[in-house]
Design a binder for these strands. Structure first.
Lengths: 109, 109
DNA sequence: TATATAAGAAACTAAATGGTTTCATGTCAA
DNA sequence: TTGACATGAAACCATTTAGTTTCTTATATA
């Protein structure tokens, strides 16, 4: 939802790991839980926090709830960071603005 | 220090605002505190957390402690995000990896 | 239909977090 | 040298966080 909700969601290592898992493919709550050394309700709470940041969406299939990564939510963090990126990567920042101001980039062979 | 320390430091809106201030110029503890509706010790605690993530460095000048932004620390977050950036910006991600994987131009035969 | 499975919900707990107030220490300047 | 100022440090507090256990509900399936 808000930028704060995304930053907050990313502040926990378990949640970042869940994001990494869901980047591979959508997973049910049980499938996600099996990757961690904690109970299913604990994982479910993390999923709820990820939902509140719109980082994942949930689709009910029968009795399972399939969690999908919504990567666009992470872009707000990337946008915040881009304000500082020129400090460490002037070259890339310049390229970025060049690309974004171009109507159509040429193909790399 | 660790990636976790950086993510943790960014999870608080006050700390992100401090980062924004220090991106303009280095500031003393009092100067930073004057921007917020909380006591100086509270701000000092935030500064300590930012230090623990190596996001700021402190130089003592007389009785003042001048806080400097260390933007390179933010790069670890950018790097983590770049793993997902292809979801929203395939074009830029490709260019980025192209650039970063290039050897030094002068050594190219 | 009976049973097993997937998940949500509630109540509880320990520890971390974000804030406060008060006090101590070092440095500048009249 | 004395007093004001910048900061650190400690003790304390309320709330949030991350986890647990237990119970309930809904759906698959033998």
């Amino acid at each position: 939802m808000t930028e704060q909700a995304v930053f907050r969601a990313l502040s926990d290592p378990t949640r970042r790991e869940i994001i990494g898992l869901l980047a591979q493919k959508p997973l049910s709550v049980n499938e996600i839980s099996s990757h961690f050394d904690m109970t299913r309700p604990a994982v479910a709470k993390h999923l709820k926090i990820l939902q509140s940041g719109d980082i994942i969406s949930v689709k009910a299939i029968g009795r399972e709830r399939i969690n999908h990564l919504e990567p666009l939510a992470l872009k707000s963090v990337a946008d915040w960071l881009s304000y500082f990126s020129h400090f460490w990567d002037t070259k890339l920042a310049k390229l970025k603005s060049t690309i974004e101001n171009q109507p159509k980039p040429e193909n790399t062979p």
